[in-house]
Nucleic acid binder design. Sequence first.
DNA 1: ATCCAGTTGG
DNA 2: CCAACCGGAT
Length: 185
Amino acid sequence: MVGAILTQNTNWKNVEKAIFNLKQADALHAEAILDMDNARLRELIRPSGFFNQKADRLKLFCTFYLRHGKENGLKKLPNPRAELLAQKGIGPETADSILLYALQMPVFVVDAYTRRIFSRLGLISADIDYTATQTLFMNHLPADVLLFNTYHALIVEHAKRHCRVKPDCATCPLLCCCDSAISNS
DNA sequence: ATCCAGTTGG
DNA sequence: CCAACCGGAT
């Protein structure tokens, strides 16, 4: 859950450093994060960028998390997703990441990579929003936690290896079925 | 449409 | 050196 918040618009490598810092400080849990003064927390999570905002968001989330009785409490809520979205600093992707990766609920996580890859392939339009993209995937896949988990991870990996902003199409495994493939380069 | 911000890989 | 980074709030 900490990772889901810290990785907002940030490279995961940087998030790992921040999480490592929290572990070293024996502070990778809600109580410790809340007990820490903000200056200290900012320093620990600094590598993940946007550290002022994220320190505040982490604390707000920890309060929310404890108020509902940690993981089990969150999972038992009538509508966990709506509760998460009501928190400042938790948007659709962060909420869904928490639902899927932390609470093991079958929710498909959409990110900028998902839309970039699939719009380039020609399977969705470029301006489709988060919810519509998510609905499309969930209407065409069985609701399976492990499948959604792996599928999203593979999308991230593919975007980093080939389907970057400046794409590397030459060695792309999806070259054959992509509308936007750049012939050479 | 802008701001938030340090880190990494090319 | 600089593009890019598993977004969200205003």
